[in-house]
Design a protein around this nucleic acid. Structure first.
Lengths: 224, 224
DNA sequence: ACCTGAACACCGTTCAAGT
DNA sequence: ACCTGAACACCGTTCAAGT
């Protein structure tokens, strides 16, 4: 991400769907969801905004395509050699890390249900669940719970990042501010939130995520 | 919510934060997330767009406030008399139904992490988990898994609705179209998605949601 | 204190016109 | 076939001016 010299904006060659998607990913990574604009994208590609519409139908399709590129990469990198449980952890963790690196993927995935990116994830999880020996009648229920959990955590993590970013805070100071806000809640109405506020500041998102996966795997195990 | 006669657009009395939030909820329910516009809201309240800013800082705050009103209602309605497990199911189901009725709440909740609406839910889940006897060191991990799952399913359900709505389809025909899309995927690359496509059309979202909750509760039980 | 509504700086998308 | 860029119909938000 920082090896080659800061090459001048090239316009060599012509536009293409892939080139547009690649540029969109860079823009999303750099400026967040609100940074993806047809004008900004056009500027980066040295064209006018209208040119993009020749290759891509609209902003929604662009977002899904960018999201799909990231998910496909993450899925192809997940190692699947070990036990089915280990594979599920690897798939889930791969997705977690991908969303962590590209927060916009979190909400993009959630907002495009049933589309290719989500199906890629579902496919991988489903195959491992089959290996695990989940009964046919419980297959749908089980993948869908796992998928919801992965997407849920991912979306929330992404939201955390974006919320912090929007307020100009680092992750730590964002968590700290939420933590003190919780500890100042009404004692009678929010005893639990108050008492858990301290643990908020020094938890590990990745560990918590995995612990949740293990909770679900534990539940699956108990029923198999 | 439906007792009094269909009163004509009133402008009696003055604007207030509560009145604005109430109107925002109606607008969101009727026209979806993209329907909430300061101009549309102002029209409904018989004022100019600027007037709203006297009572509310910006659109984000308005969305969170509207979301909070719905969550507060749902939480206060959840019955908590029975066992902790039953309480957790009731809380989760209450949230599921609330999001089902007001799909915009799904993404609003997700996009405002650590804010009041999410804390309400966390508080209720946390108290029940304590009753259940979850060990202190596992409390944070456990609530956060449960919360992520609830929000994840909710957000996805909401996205389903909105996706279908945007394409002018009913839930059933939307699911049917996704189902046929999945069954036409490449056989070598997507065996699982293809084989499960059929089950997609006739599943029950609510039942699947509860089954996922039970999976997590099963995992918690195994560790307690 | 509260409201008005024009104005500012943006959006996504379209489309005639160019090559 | 592919690109250009002005134009359209919107946004959220601000702010002088009114009551």
């Amino acid at each position: 991400m920082a090896k080659k010299p800061p090459a001048p904006p090239r316009r060599e060659g012509s536009l293409s769907r892939d080139r547009i998607i690649e540029a969109a990913i860079v823009l999303l990574d750099e400026a967040g969801e609100s940074g993806l604009t047809f004008r900004a994208l056009a500027e980066r590609l040295v064209t006018g905004p209208g040119a993009i519409y020749w290759h891509i139908a609209n902003k929604g399709e662009l977002l899904i395509a960018a999201c799909d590129a990231i998910v496909a990469r993450a899925m192809s990198e997940a190692r699947l050699d070990a036990s089915p449980e280990a594979s599920i952890r690897a798939i889930a963790l791969g997705m977690f890390d991908a969303i962590d690196e590209h927060p916009w993927v979190g909400s993009a995935l959630t907002h495009a249900p049933g589309q290719l990116p989500a199906v890629r994830l579902l496919e991988r999880l489903g195959r491992s669940l089959r290996e695990l020996g989940v009964r046919r009648e419980r297959e749908w229920t089980t993948v869908s719970a796992l998928l919801s959990y992965v997407l849920g955590v991912g979306a929330q993590n992404a939201a955390n990042r974006q919320f912090a970013f929007a307020e100009g805070l680092e992750r730590d100071s964002f968590l700290a501010s939420v933590s003190t806000a919780w500890s100042e809640l009404d004692a009678a109405e929010y005893p639990f939130a108050r008492s858990i506020a301290a643990q908020l500041s020094d938890h590990d998102d990745r560990e918590d995520f995995l612990a949740g996966i293990d909770l679900i795997l534990g539940g699956i195990h108990a029923l198999t």
